[in-house]
Design a protein around this nucleic acid. Sequence first.
DNA 1: CGATTGAACTCCTCTAGACGACTATGTACC
DNA 2: GGTACATAGTCGTCTAGAGGAGTTCAATCG
Lengths: 259, 259
Amino acid sequence: MVDLGVIDRTDDRPPYRQIATQLRRLISTGKLTPGAKLPSESELIEHYGVARMTVRQALQELRGEGLVVAEHGKGVFVRSAPPVRRLASNRFARAHRKEGKAAFLVEAEATGRKATVDQISVTTEPAPADIADRLHLAEGARVVMRSRRYLADGVPVEIATSYVPESIAAGTAITSTDTGPGGIYARIEEQGHELGRFTEEVTARMPTPEERKVLQIGAGVPVMTLVRTAFDVDDLPVEVCDTVKVSHAYVLEYDVPAR
Amino acid sequence: MVDLGVIDRTDDRPPYRQIATQLRRLISTGKLTPGAKLPSESELIEHYGVARMTVRQALQELRGEGLVVAEHGKGVFVRSAPPVRRLASNRFARAHRKEGKAAFLVEAEATGRKATVDQISVTTEPAPADIADRLHLAEGARVVMRSRRYLADGVPVEIATSYVPESIAAGTAITSTDTGPGGIYARIEEQGHELGRFTEEVTARMPTPEERKVLQIGAGVPVMTLVRTAFDVDDLPVEVCDTVKVSHAYVLEYDVPAR
DNA sequence: CGATTGAACTCCTCTAGACGACTATGTACC
DNA sequence: GGTACATAGTCGTCTAGAGGAGTTCAATCG
């Protein structure tokens, strides 16, 4: 077992915080490596001579930082570093679409991971207000809504929802589960909307309980949201894609000219 | 007071989670607006007929989501929406530098906020390994390191650390607390390194306890990290800027050509 | 009138114990 | 050999209570 410290009752920091600090140090110094099991609650209680709730509060702190995950009936484990996917800003280059590949698969292939998509749903509905705004549509105009979940090596890493105006999507494979070679963007271009540029808006927040479930992440793991709007060469918005990514699974890369 | 629901003991979700859900709904439906005070622990205990720890566990859940903040001795309050700053990808346009304005001030001015900078420190040290790598420097080469904290309307929103090779920074205002008109980038260009492009790497994570203190945020509020590397027209890296931003205070905007 | 005191209220921390649910493992039985 | 079961160990949830510390505000004292 690892060597734990003791609680200093003269320290003005509360015991649960001291315990958390000592456990945190074990992780950051590598004495506890990813996947390793922390001492059980009982062991910590005995070692530190405190009540159960005090130990649990310390562990709660570490879970809140996303450092550890608790598994019911098994123990508390140091979170294993998930695969990091780098998203380069040229990932929608037309060359890839010409090759008949969807963006997600291209990225995954580049990093040697097995990419899968599931929980696909396709519906046609009135556009939500913010989406209608981004697509320059009248309120209540109908859009094709495509939701799906992406997994890398079987681990959920992202959920995404695309919105395409019905006027563009109608009668194309966009309304099918399988959008065909090259994905949505290839279909949109076939409809005479050659893509000109994208805008992306990035921010981060804590996941909702539902997102936690779908992405299989514990409390204390933040998500990044990326809302991408695709414009054709006439600067007409043709698609909005709202994605929620497990933050530690992604690094977004952008290239910005100095002008 | 607001109208709370009741606990359904036949529901398979635990009571604390039901309480959290009901409070969450009060917030999301606007019955509790930002800044409003939630019912006190005592009131919740009496209303739901549960033990203190059960109520606290529900509140803990909401704090973990960053929805509420607890203030010792006062109560628990709905987190007031902080000022959101949009960072457009053209924020480093040369035109602004020519006008003698630093990037942060330009942004703040555009949104009508009062921007301030404090906790400035300037030192010269051997470059950390990852920085040396990004700057194409030999390990141990010396860099000027500039740290500072940014505040919008007096609220901390970002901490940043810039690294400039000593070969470029030596003898310039970069080594002074005040970098002069146009900021670091103007000084770098004066040294004959006309800026050509930037790369930015964005990800999100939970803050360290120290970051929490400096940024004055509670547990449960994530941060975004943005590492920007500046290249001159010869594609030589001339600066790396590592920033940690309070996530809910920022939306990053990028423009990506379709190529 | 101003300053101090005290009470009431808030959230923070901790104790001690209980039962439940999930996981793993060994054992007895078929 | 394989299945079913018992058991021990784990974390999850809840109860009931205690003292501490920060905040607020009204009453009291000088």
